[in-house]
Simulated scan of single mutants.
Amino acid sequence: MGIKRLKQGRIRMRVPPLEIDLLKTFQRVVTSGSISKTAEDMYLSVSTVTGRIKALEDEVGVPLFVRTGRRIELTDAGAAFVAYVERFMDLIEEGRSRIHARGMAHAGHLNIAATPFFTSYMLPDMIRRFAKKFPKVRLKLSACSNSQVLSLVTQGKADIGMVQEQPQEKGLVRYPLLRDPVIPVVPKGHPLTRLEAIGPEDAASCPILGFDTRSEPWSLLEQWFARHRLVLRVHMEFDHPETLKRYLQPFGAIAFLPGLTVAEELESGDLVSLRMAPPPDIRSSLFMVSRSEASNHAQASQAFMEFALREAAEIAGGAE
C-alpha cells in the first residue's frame, strides 16, 4: 500500500487494485466453496482464481484453504481471516458511500426559513461561507415569524428553519444552536457608563426601550426587575433592533438586546455594555429545526445543518 502526499498537506492512500481483487476473490471462494464456481461467477479462468488465492496465502503467510475432494474448505487460520476481510471490505464500501454523499452535498436546492433576527444577524456571514464552500447549492431564504417558520418546515415547504424559541410542534427535530446573552447597552457618553457597575434601580431610572417584549427573555427580564421590587416600564417599543438602536442616543435610553444584535456597535464603541450587579444572566435561545425524517434529509440540507452547528459552536466559543 503506497501513500502519496498531495498539495496543501492532504494525503491520498493508494491501495493496489490487485490487493482488493485478492480479497474479493477470497470472499467469493468462501461463499461458493468452489474454485471453478468462483471463476465462473467472476468471469475469470480457474488458474487466475487459483493464482489469486495462492498470492493471498503468500501475503498472509499461512494456508487459508484445504482441499477435501472436489470442494475446498477454510483452515482455522482462513476462518479467522474471514471476519477481518469482511470488516475491511465494509470499510471500503462505507468510505465510498461517504465520498459519494459529500459529492452530492455540492449540488441541489435548499430552502431555508428564518426569523428576521437570523436573516439580519446570524445568517449573512454563515450563508456567505456556506455558498463559498458549496457553490452549486442553490439557496432560497425566506424571512418570517417564528410560527410561520415552523409551519413552512412542517409542511415541507422549507427544508430547514431557524427560530428564536424552543419549538414544541410534533414531527420536528430541534437542534440547539446558541444561547445568546441579553446585554444591557447604552449609547457612548451616557451617564451610566461612568459607573463601574449599575444596579436594577439605576437601569429603572432611565428610559427603557423595549424589543421583542412578548418573548421569553423579556418575560425573564420583567421577573428579574420584579424580584428587586421594581417594574420594568417601557418608554417605547420596537419590532426590530436596528430601529431601536437609532433611538438610544436621542432618548438617552438603555436597552436590553441580544449580543448578536449589538456586536458591531460594541466593537466600534458607538454602544457600551453595562455591568450589572447582580447580573440578570438572561439568554435568548436560538434553534434550528427540520422535519423528523432525519434519514431522508437531502445531502444539501444535511451539509448545511452540520455547517450551521459548527458555525454556532465557534460563535459561542468566541463569546466566552
Score class of each variant (00 low, 15 high):
Leu44Glu: 07
Leu257Thr: 11
Glu267Tyr: 12
Ser295Ile: 04
Gln155Asp: 07
Gly171Phe: 09
His100Ile: 01
Pro258Asp: 04
Ala197Thr: 15
Arg14Val: 15
Leu244Gly: 03
Val186Pro: 02
Arg12Val: 10
Thr261Met: 06
Arg179Leu: 14
Ala105Tyr: 00
Thr261Cys: 12
Ala55Val: 06
Met288Lys: 07
Val262Asn: 05
Phe251His: 02
Gln168Tyr: 12
Tyr43Gln: 14
His106Gly: 13
Leu139Arg: 10
Asp212Lys: 07
Val60Ile: 15
Pro279Lys: 04
Met276Asp: 00
Phe81Thr: 07
Phe117Glu: 10
Lys133Asn: 02
Ala204Pro: 00
Ala226His: 03
Met305Leu: 14
Ser147Ala: 14
Val137Gln: 00
Leu123Val: 05
Gln166Phe: 11
Ser215Asn: 10
Lys133Met: 06
Pro258Val: 06
Gly33Asp: 07
Phe26Gln: 05
Pro187His: 11
Leu274Met: 09
Val82Arg: 10
Phe117Asn: 04
Phe118Cys: 10
Leu139Asn: 07
Gly317Gln: 13
Thr68Arg: 15
Thr261Glu: 12
Met288Leu: 15
Pro258Gln: 09
Val30Trp: 09
Ile112Thr: 05
Val185Tyr: 02
Ile127Asp: 01
Trp224Tyr: 15
Gly103Gln: 01
Leu230Gly: 04
Pro250Ser: 08
Ile3Glu: 14
Gln155Trp: 03
Leu123Met: 05
Gly210Phe: 00
Lys188Thr: 13
Gly210Leu: 01
Leu260Asp: 05
Arg174Thr: 12
Glu165Ala: 12
Glu267Arg: 15
Pro250Arg: 09
Asp90Glu: 15
Thr25His: 03
Phe307Val: 03
Asp180Gln: 03
Ala101Glu: 10
Ile282Leu: 10
Val185Thr: 05
Gly9Ser: 09
Ala263Phe: 05
Leu110Pro: 01
Leu150Ala: 08
Leu22Ala: 06
Gly108Val: 03
Glu19Cys: 03
Ile20Leu: 13
Arg67Val: 11
Pro217Thr: 04
Gly171Asp: 09
Ile53Cys: 05
Arg87Phe: 06
Glu57Asp: 08
Ala55Pro: 01
Met13Tyr: 14
Ala298Ile: 00
Glu311Cys: 14
Glu216Ser: 13
Ala308Cys: 14
Met13Asp: 08
Asp90Ala: 14
Arg129Cys: 03
Glu237Met: 10
Met126Lys: 08
Val49Leu: 11
Leu221Ile: 08
Gly51Trp: 04
Ala308Ile: 08
Arg138Ser: 10
Asp281Tyr: 06
